[in-house]
């Protein structure tokens, strides 16, 4: 089985007015790509469009030559997971319950987990060091702990493409490093396609395979030096 490549072509993202244009980009399995840009430059809009949560104004998004808009909700969720930048707080749910939602696209009407589902949940909790939070309620967690649980949910989804909007927000320096290295490892070892947006121009560019920069409404190829120069 060949892993799908994410291919975008002449994409224009935005709500009513175009915010970001991206001409021709391919995201291959086994790579971790960072999207950089000023506040309000459209990083979230771009990722939401790739995640299929917002229709593009024009252009195409192909998943292994199949249009993203041709997939059902569930099919899409099995192929693409998305960590939003918001920190939700469903107070009465435990860490495990939240992480387990990553399997909803894989289970039937009654959401009965099979063994593979439980294995994915356990593994996601372990990778994100949230096993100790499994029985803790979201209301009792810190912002950083909640973020890690949401990341566990994202990984439990076991999708080929993983999109993360500001995954390092709320994390302390050590957790930032650990999570970043984890994401790169996952991309390489599990042949996933990871795309993340971040403001961490210090720690992030050296770890990433590719750096893209949104500048004046356009997505460009860049590199660590280019990103630093942009923000200088």
């Amino acid at each position: 089985m060949t892993s799908p490549t994410l291919h975008i072509n002449q994409l224009v993202c935005g709500y009513k007015n175009p915010v970001v244009r991206a001409e021709d980009f391919r995201f291959e399995p086994g790579t971790c790509t960072g999207i950089f840009g000023d506040n309000g430059s459209g990083k979230s809009t771009f990722l939401r469009t790739l995640a299929g949560l917002q229709p593009p104004l024009s252009g195409s998004i192909l998943l292994d030559k199949k249009g993203l808009d041709e997939l059902s909700h569930k099919e899409r969720a099995r192929k693409i997971s998305f960590l939003t930048s918001q920190s939700p707080s469903p107070h009465g749910l435990t860490g495990r319950q939240v992480a387990a939602m990553g399997r909803l696209a894989h289970t039937g009407t009654w959401a009965r987990p099979r063994k593979t589902d439980r294995d994915h949940i356990d593994k996601a909790l372990e990778l994100t060091s949230t096993l100790s939070l499994a029985e803790k309620r979201m209301s009792e967690m810190s912002d950083g702990e909640r973020k890690r649980v949401m990341l566990a949910q994202c990984l439990a989804q076991d999708s080929q493409i993983i999109l993360l909007d500001e995954p390092f927000a709320f994390l302390d320096a050590r957790a930032k490093n650990a999570i970043h290295r984890l994401l790169v490892d996952i991309a390489i070892e599990q042949r996933k396609t990871i795309i993340l947006s971040t403001h961490e121009i210090g720690i992030s560019p050296p770890l990433l395979h590719y750096c893209l920069l949104i500048d004046r409404g356009k997505l460009h190829h860049s590199d660590a030096a280019g990103v630093v120069r942009h923000f200088a």
């Binding site: 939401r48 995640a51 949560l53 909700h73 569930k74 899409r76 969720a77 099995r78 693409i80 997971s81 998305f82 939003t84 918001q86 939700p88 469903p90 749910l93 319950q97 939240v98 939602m101 990553g102 909803l104 696209a105 289970t107 009407t109 009654w110 959401a111 949401m150 949910q153 989804q157």
Partner: peptide
Amino acid sequence: LSTLKWYNAFLLGNENARSLGAPL
């Protein structure tokens, strides 16, 4: 009951529920 399995995800917000595959 036909959509009950998505209700917990709904508590995480619409955006999150959709990315988990919920037919919102």
